[in-house]
Write a protein that binds this DNA or RNA. Structure first.
Length: 466
RNA sequence: UCCCCGGUAGCUCAAUGGUGGAGCGUGCGGCUGUUAACCGCAAGGUUCUUGGUUCGAGUCCAAGCCGGGGAGCCA
């Protein structure tokens, strides 16, 4: 069943060559003049190829006039210039084989506009729509662009574990991994975690960072790219229970280098998407969010804004706005504050740095020379319009005594982090890294409003169908 | 988890407390090198569930389930 991808067919000059394509019928227009137009899509590109099926084909009356949306066909013919408008080339079929029928009374994907809510209930078929196919192709290109960026810079791709024993950093509720009986019979003793598969409580990872740091402190620059799990009961268009995260970690790097890498990284991703997914982005710009193309184009050409947390708070305080959540040094920035900064003040991505130590994680490096009561850490968040936080990162605390002090303040037990602390005992080095949410990045690129529409099978509270 | 909105034909949506409709899709017919074609006819309903108010409930009330938006948590 050798076939040519429609993507390639459409970029080939029509010289009457014979080709075979396989695809799914989008629309059929039967002409009583004795032939039919089949619009076929094979997923390789947003565009469809028009196949002209002549009435003289042996299975024309028996099969081809009965084709409807969703049917799978294999079409062979000659590629010619189209006589009609709307397409430059078309396939003059010499044979059309129907491989799979799709009952038109039952097939859910009608040739009409469907809501994303409805298509979420048909997640196994929604990739057959233009929008989800476009998002899927962009997700592919972005994933490869992520690897490109780091590989070109000599970063080593490291696979950190999915199953972890470290209840680390309080980065959120974790999914328990166990082989113990979920519901022991009444009266039975409670299962002991020591009897569990790993001999201790284990969870799905919420971050590969701590393990990533250990490899950065041996390999120099590394990155992880894999699934991440959060058991938070978050019901928003920006959260998933299972999502993909990219986490670079760089030895011999400070916060400044971290922020520079983050900016270059995002621009590389956006630029690659613009170059390699032009048609798909044009479609999304036309049908989903008109700001997508102009925004991406502008960002690639501009510099991200940099402000410290202290400067950001000052901007919010003098905004003249009334905030639902009060603004003041020491409180975390709320969604309304972040959106104001990135959507109204700067109108582009903003890197906010040096947050108060009290509201950030234990592993972030304590800034030197801060005023009493105003301790900050070398943290950074990259905020973008609409989506909010796309990247969160920091320079890590490399000084053993300072780190132990911070852990004591937060009542973290050093023995639980013995291997993490060893990095600070043996050849400790300034290092920094960040985490990028793949799905949020895709939301920003595609303009899709709900994160559940940029991953094939979204996992969220009470939602694990398929 | 909290707040707000919603759930009616396959899909998108109408319907003063008084006989549930339209567009699209589907089926049939007509027409056409057509473009999510066009014209006509037809089929298609446990109005999310349970209970309540009422002579009478899609409509009002309560609880639950599901979906969406906002918030928190974060990526």
């Amino acid at each position: 069943m050798a076939r040519t991808l429609i993507k390639d067919v459409l970029t080939t000059p029509p010289t009457g060559q014979e080709i075979t394509i396989g695809g799914w019928v989008r629309t059929v227009r039967n002409s009583k003049g004795g032939f039919s137009f089949l619009a076929l899509n094979d997923g390789s590109t947003i565009a469809q190829l028009q196949v002209v099926a002549d009435g003289k084909l042996p299975n024309y009356a028996a099969e081809l006039v009965k084709l409807t949306a969703g049917c799978a066909v294999l079409a062979t013919g000659t590629l010619v210039q189209s006589q009609g408008k709307g397409q430059t080339v078309e396939l003059q079929a010499t044979a059309v084989q129907v491989l799979g029928w799709a009952d038109p009374e039952a097939y859910p994907i009608q040739p009409k506009k469907h809501t994303f809510e409805f298509l979420r209930t048909q997640a196994h078929l929604r990739a057959r729509t233009n929008t989800f196919a476009a998002v899927t192709r962009i997700r592919n290109v972005v994933s490869m662009a992520i690897h490109d960026f780091f590989q070109q810079r000599g970063f080593i791709y490291v696979h950190t574990p999915i199953i972890t024993a470290s209840d680390c950093e309080g980065a959120g509720q974790m999914f328990r991994v166990t082989t113990l009986e979920a519901n022991p019979p009444a009266g039975a003793p409670r299962p002991d975690p020591n009897d569990d598969f790993f001999g201790r409580p284990t969870y799905l990872t919420v971050s590969g960072q701590l393990e990533g740091e250990t490899y950065a402190c041996a390999m120099g620059n590394i990155y992880t790219f894999g699934p991440t799990f959060r058991a938070e009961n978050s019901n928003t268009p920006r959260h998933l229970a299972e999502f993909w995260m990219v986490e670079p970690e760089m030895a011999f790097c400070d916060l400044e280098g971290d922020a520079e890498t983050a900016e270059a990284f995002l621009k590389h991703i956006f630029r690659t998407a613009l170059e390699r997914c032009t048609k798909d982005l044009e479609f999304l710009s036309e049908h989903v969010d008109a700001t997508v193309l102009p925004t991406l184009t502008a960002i690639v050409a501009s510099d991200f804004e940099r402000v410290t947390y202290t400067e950001a708070v000052a901007l919010l305080e003098k905004s003249g706005r009334t905030w639902q959540y009060p603004v003041g040094w020491g409180t975390d920035l709320q969604t309304e504050h972040e959106r104001y900064l990135t959507e109204e003040v700067f109108r582009k991505p903003v890197v906010v740095t040096h947050y108060p130590a009290a509201i950030k994680s234990f592993y972030m490096r304590l800034d030197d020379g801060t005023a009493p009561g105003r301790a900050t850490v070398a943290a950074m968040d990259v905020l973008v319009p609409k989506i909010g936080e796309l990247i969160g990162g920091s320079q890590r605390e490399e000084r053993l005594d300072v780190l132990l002090q911070r852990m004591a303040e937060l009542k973290l037990r050093p023995e639980d982090y013995w291997w993490y602390l060893d990095l600070r005992r043996y050849g400790s080095v300034p290092h920094a890294g960040f985490g990028l949410g793949l799905e949020r990045t895709l939301q920003f690129i595609t303009g899709m409003a709900n994160i559940r529409d940029v991953i094939p099978y979204p996992r969220a509270p009470r939602s694990a169908e398929f």
